[in-house]
C-alpha cells in the first residue's frame, strides 16, 4: 500500500476545554489533493493542527496508512510522514536559510538543499541570511521548502500563498503540483484564494462551525455559484 493515506474519524478537538471541531470525518487517499475551504474561524486551521497533534483531542481518531496516531506526539507524527506548513510560518528565526533547510533534512545529505533552491531561487540568494531577517513571503518559501525536504507522505498546507506575490504563487502551486504528481505526496490545502485551491485540488471539503458540511469534487463546487455563496460567502469561485 503506498504511503500517504490519511483518515480522520469523528474528530472532536480544540484548545483546552474549548471545542472547535465537532465530529469531523474525512478520508484522503495517497497522492490525493484536497482543498479545505470555509469562512474565517470555522476550524480549518484547527483541523490541520489537530491532524498534526497540536490541539487538545476530545474524541475521534486520526490514522496514517491505517495506523492510529491519535495518541502520538507531534514529532512522532512528523516522523510517520506528516509535513506541516502552518499559517504562522515555522521558520527558526535564529538559524540562517541554509541551516533551516538542513535542520529539515532529518539527517539526509546536505546537497538535497539544492532542491529547495531550485524551487525557490530567492532562497539561494539569501541563503546566508537569518530567517528572522527575511520578508514574510521569503519566510513562507522557506517554511514550505523545509517541509518538502522532509519528504512527507502527507503535506498539510495552511494558507501557503498568504503574503506571496502572484508570480510566486503561480510558481509555488506549480511546484506543489509537480511534487504531488512525481512523488504521489498527499496534500491537504487550506487556502483563502478559493479559485486557486479548487484549481489545485481534485477534491474539496467545506467546514462550517467545526463541522464538515460539504465534500465532493472541486469541479462540482467551482461549477456551483450557489454552493460557493452558501458555504464560502463568495459570489463566485
Amino acid at each position: 500500500m503506498p504511503g500517504g493515506n490519511l483518515e480522520v474519524e469523528d474528530l472532536v478537538a480544540g484548545y483546552g476545554a474549548t471545542r472547535v471541531l465537532e465530529g469531523v470525518s474525512m478520508r484522503v487517499a495517497a497522492g490525493e489533493r484536497l482543498a479545505v475551504l470555509g469562512r474565517n474561524g470555522v476550524g480549518k486551521t484547527t483541523l490541520l493542527a489537530s491532524i498534526m497533534g497540536l490541539t487538545q483531542r476530545h474524541g475521534g481518531a486520526v490514522r496514517i496508512d491505517g495506523q492510529d496516531v491519535s495518541r502520538s506526539s507531534t514529532s512522532d507524527r512528523a516522523r510517520k510522514g506528516l509535513g506541516y506548513v502552518p499559517q504562522t510560518r515555522d521558520v527558526f528565526r535564529s538559524l540562517n536559510v541554509e541551516e533551516n533547510l538542513v535542520a529539515g533534512l532529518k539527517g539526509k545529505p546536505r546537497d538535497l538543499t539544492r532542491v529547495a533552491y531550485e524551487m525557490f531561487p530567492r532562497l539561494a540568494e539569501r541563503h546566508w541570511n537569518l530567517a528572522g531577517q527575511l520578508s514574510g513571503g521569503e519566510q513562507q518559501m522557506l517554511s514550505i521548502a523545509r517541509a518538502i525536504l522532509g519528504e512527507p507522505t502527507v503535506l498539510l498546507l495552511d494558507e501557503p500563498l498568504e503574503g506571496l506575490a502572484p508570480v510566486i504563487c503561480d510558481n509555488l502551486m506549480a511546484a506543489l503540483g509537480e511534487l504531488s504528481a512525481q512523488r504521489a505526496v498527499t496534500m491537504i490545502l487550506v487556502e483563502q484564494q478559493i479559485q486557486r485551491a479548487l484549481d489545485f485540488a481534485e477534491n474539496a471539503v467545506v467546514l462550517d462551525r467545526g463541522r464538515l458540511v460539504w465534500q465532493g469534487r472541486s469541479a462540482d463546487l467551482a461549477a456551483s455559484p450557489e454552493l460557493v455563496e452558501r458555504y464560502l460567502g463568495a459570489a463566485s469561485a
Binding site: M52, L54, S73, T74, S75, A78, R79, Y84, P86, D90, V91, F92, R93, S94, L95, E99, V102, A103, G104, L105, K106, G107, R146, A147, G150
Partner: peptide
C-alpha cells in the same frame, strides 16, 4: 554545532513546538 544535530538543538531553543513539527525529539 553546525551538524544537523547541532542545528536541531538551536531549533529547539528557538521554538520547541516548531521543532516537534519537523520531527525532532526534544
Amino acid at each position: 554545532v553546525r551538524s544537523p544535530f547541532g542545528l536541531l538543538t538551536r531549533a529547539i531553543k528557538d521554538d520547541t513546538v516548531k521543532a516537534r513539527m519537523i520531527g525532532a525529539s526534544i
